[in-house]
């Protein structure tokens, strides 16, 4: 009788063969191939990008009712939705750092330059040179704006940075909020915010990223 895998091996109790501890240890070791660096970040980047694209646009319910009423009365609606007052970038950055990604500063492994460049590119920014000391990077919403959120580990401690392409900030400002020391400034065609326990590394990081950021591609 030809054996197939759905027949029990004759004259032998069902057995999976895993009774050789030395071999099992070798097997586990061989199966434990290295996981590519930055896999988690790439997974989360892809997911957050997709989630952003798939999120439905919402209009405040009150404004929808007002527009419907105006149309029903035959009048012209003045506006369909009032723009929300712009929230200050430092506030948004501090809130995001504290409440949305508090683990971002805990990572110690560096993100590969190719991944840093790729993620900035998805945010519409070309990097001429990629600074080497990026330990975390993600695309995140800061209010209505998409930002590149990254962490640079420095001798004085981790520095959280947000580059917001297209956000026009007229002022350069140093601030303190919720235990953070921060700096917000216009940079390239966007804005950069830095947050840390101290501003020891701010000047150097500002110079580094000013050199690294290129003009975004047209279109």
């Amino acid at each position: 009788m030809a054996l197939d895998d759905h027949n029990v091996i004759p004259f032998a109790a069902p057995h999976d063969g895993g009774d050789d501890p030395a071999f099992e240890a070798r097997l586990k070791r061989a199966l434990a191939v290295p996981v590519p660096a930055g896999l988690d970040e790439r997974v989360l980047l892809r997911q957050t990008t997709a989630a952003r694209r798939e999120a439905p646009r919402r209009f405040p319910g009150a404004w929808r009712a007002a527009a419907a009423l105006a149309l029903a009365l035959g009048g012209a609606a003045f506006y369909l939705a009032a723009p929300k007052p712009a929230q200050a970038l430092p506030e948004l950055a501090v809130d995001h750092t504290l409440h949305h990604e508090p683990y971002a500063t805990a990572r110690t492994a560096r993100v590969a330059p190719s991944q840093v460049r790729a993620l900035f590119a998805r945010g519409g920014v070309l990097l001429d040179e990629v600074p080497a000391d990026v330990h975390y990077i993600n695309l995140c919403d800061l209010g209505p704006d998409l930002s590149v959120h990254f962490v640079s580990r420095q001798p004085a401690g981790p520095v959280t940075l947000y580059y917001v392409p297209g956000r026009l900030e007229s002022m350069r400002m140093d601030f303190r909020q919720d235990g953070f020391v921060g700096r917000s400034l216009p940079l390239a065609r966007g804005a950069l915010v830095m947050l840390a326990a101290s501003d020891t590394d701010f000047d150097r990081l500002e110079s580094t990223w000013r050199a690294a950021l290129a003009v975004p591609p047209a279109g």
Partner: peptide
């Protein structure tokens, strides 16, 4: 499954 595991090893 047990047979397949045995044979795999």
């Amino acid at each position: 499954v047990m047979t397949q595991l045995f044979r795999a090893r």
